[in-house]
Write a protein that binds this DNA or RNA. Structure first.
Lengths: 180, 180
DNA sequence: GTCTATAGGATGATAGAC
DNA sequence: GTCTATCATCCTATAGAC
């Protein structure tokens, strides 16, 4: 047989890179790391992809494409309908591309896995339990985590003209507190 | 005067590092970058801090300390009371340490600022508007962003034994959809 | 298409003068 | 305490043989 049925080198590179980027982040992964995982040389990587960043761009192209599609679908619909569709569409998109999205947040994993900050996970688990309001089911814990992460992430890009504190508390209560 | 009243070199290093880590991430910031920002040599940095990681650890110590305090405070209280306190306490903690928390998520900023992915911000803005359900006020947009980020971040650390999709859709609806 | 070899530069950290 | 000079290592990317 001339070539292997599965996985041309190019696809093996993408697969290995996806795993390494998700585990160690983009900057935390070197061409050497990818080459070792694939079992080829760095030069081979750069034969198939012009630069390291092109590997990342190729990996992220499908989720970005789906995001474009989703935004097009919700555009111009009645607000309430668009909202429901945006919620379900975004959740599905995220679940379909877990690995690609996880690599965006690699520093989080880095921190949680560094020995010096190992307690962090325990701390957030305790806080998550409190946020779940005593509910012990996994669903409540997932919701608590979603809210912790979401609140933490608004720090990346501040918003003007709002009482951010009040808004964050409100959205967390809506999401987490049982209605009477 | 023997020494400057404000900012010993050590504190100038911490201040410069905080800004650079937040902007470019921990791995994306070199000792050289910090030294240039402070106006000293790399050797001076490493006189004050044993390693680069020690600079990060020093920076993160206060928020971690506050997180410990918060978890202690909610521990052993009635669930409903603990929940309210956890929500407010966590929001305040995040707002108090915006910069320190932002550095954890630097890859996000990296992606959004890379020219190849410049459209991403526009896309998420459109999706955020849809998630806000037609509401135009900044508060609704903040809530939409919180939910997008929170949902995206559950990919970092999957949960077992739940219908994740259903839970995510439920928490997003609770947080975002106006009640009748 | 894949390799070895290497260019050319940045990195974290150290040694030792002042 | 701060510096210059340097080490040893890593990095992305290229050149050229096969």
């Amino acid at each position: 047989m001339r070539a292997m049925a599965r996985g041309s080198t190019r696809e093996e590179i993408l697969s290995a890179a996806a795993g390494l980027f998700a585990a160690d982040g983009y900057k935390g992964t070197s061409l050497q790391d990818i080459a070792a995982a694939v079992g080829c040389s760095k030069a081979t990587l750069l034969y198939h992809f012009a630069t390291k960043e092109m590997i990342l761009a190729t990996l992220l192209a499908p989720p970005v494409r789906d995001l474009v599609t989703l935004t097009e679908q919700v555009a111009g619909r009645p607000a309430a309908e668009a909202q429901q569709q945006a919620i379900e569409g975004f959740v599905d998109l995220v679940l379909n591309y877990r690995r690609e999205i996880a690599l965006i947040f690699h520093d989080l994993a880095f921190l949680f896995n560094e020995s010096s900050f190992a307690d962090l996970r325990d701390l957030t688990d305790v806080l998550g339990a409190a946020l779940a309001g005593g509910a012990k089911d996994p669903a409540a814990l997932v919701k608590a985590r979603v809210m912790m992460a979401g609140i933490a992430l608004i720090t990346v890009d501040p918003v003007e003209g709002v009482d951010v504190r009040a808004v964050l508390i409100d959205v967390a209560r809506r999401a987490l507190v049982q209605r009477a």
